[in-house]
Design a protein around this nucleic acid. Structure first.
Lengths: 199, 199
DNA sequence: ATTATCTATAGATCTATAGATAATGC
DNA sequence: ATTATCTATAGATCTATAGATAATGC
């Protein structure tokens, strides 16, 4: 039954990957260790050789979810270097992202859950959120670093909030409108920032 | 053991009130019927004479939470009739609201959870969210109704997202900055709207 | 000899139901 | 007679641990 050290490490990584998806789909309290481990192709008994607790896995899975998010932002930005913010905003505020609960932004799926978790999960969120802000800042063309961070925070808040609102309602038209209104607002905020930066 | 019909109805209302608070504090999956009923001064056995299921209570408790939210918005707006949006924005984006998880905005506390619930909970959310938008619209002074709704959606998104981000991180400074950045952005968005309305 | 995973289980908790009890409402 | 609430419990599930097993790594 024992596997090689390399295989064990690979299994551990698989558990984190699977958890990062299933936690986002069902919430931290919406899925148990048995289902998580089985989705990773293992049994529940193997869990505690790999992780200290469910909370420990939650923190690591959150970190992994942010890594995936950052990678997607980078890819979108690189594919559209003339307007990276427009590309990320279009991706974030798409109906595709609204429906893709398992591989979408961790703040949207688990931000409110994270607020109720221990300091480890919150630390993962804080680190991931800071990375998002660091990416957004340079795209805003403000000369002043502080004003740029303020704009980045407002833009991230708008995108996160709109996607949550979009997911929380039944009506598809309303759902779509939240995303469109947010995209319009993000555009105006960034145009405003670029204008100020040129003064 | 039986109580009067009036008392039974009062008990039912108490359960909904208690649930609207405890669901917001712990999430729909973070608290059980036993604890909810005991917090309302009853035993678990009485639950199913009052509600069809936990999901049924979740939908009614969500509705109740929005009623409370609307009442607070109205009170803030009436206390500051010259700048109702400024008053609501200041209240929403305060550290008090950030910490007041049990009596705060239901979208912030349970929006992501609601996305994973059945159509009844989502219907409660949709109705509550539409009420919020109806309140915000007239404060924006746009001549065009559609543009006004867009702005209202963007402002609500910004406030909801910022509060979630503010709650999800450990660092208090960062927490506060999200709220401040969002307040600044809401102010600019509404000033922008007022300007356009006067053209 | 060590250890990654397995099966099995402890002990708590979850939603939901059943039947008893005691007060209301006709 | 009806019924709101109670106690008790079914049956499932939860996190976490214990001990067995079988392969790795020294």
């Amino acid at each position: 039954m024992r596997v090689s050290r390399a295989q064990a490490e690979e299994n551990r990584q698989t558990v984190i990957d699977v958890a990062s998806r299933l936690f986002r789909e069902h919430g931290f309290d919406g899925i148990g260790l048995k289902d998580l481990m089985e989705a990773a192709g293992l049994t529940q008994g193997a869990f505690y050789k790999q992780f200290a607790s469910k909370d420990d896995l939650a923190a690591q899975a959150s970190e992994r979810a942010f890594e995936s998010g950052i990678r997607r932002w980078s890819a979108a930005a690189e594919a559209n270097p003339k307007d990276p913010l427009g590309a990320v905003s279009a991706l974030f505020l798409s109906m595709g992202h609204r429906e893709e609960t398992g591989d979408g932004c961790p703040v949207v799926a688990l931000g409110a859950d994270a607020a109720r978790q221990g300091p480890d999960v919150k630390a993962s969120f804080e680190a991931g959120i800071r990375k998002y802000l660091e990416m957004l800042g340079p795209w805003l063309g403000e000369s002043d670093g502080e004003a740029s961070t303020d704009k980045a925070m407002a833009i991230l808040s708008t995108m996160v909030g709109a996607t949550i609102l979009s997911r929380a309602v039944n009506n598809k038209r309303l759902s779509k409108r939240f995303l469109q209104a947010a995209a319009k607002s993000v555009k105006e905020l960034s145009a405003d920032a670029a204008q100020k930066g040129q003064l």
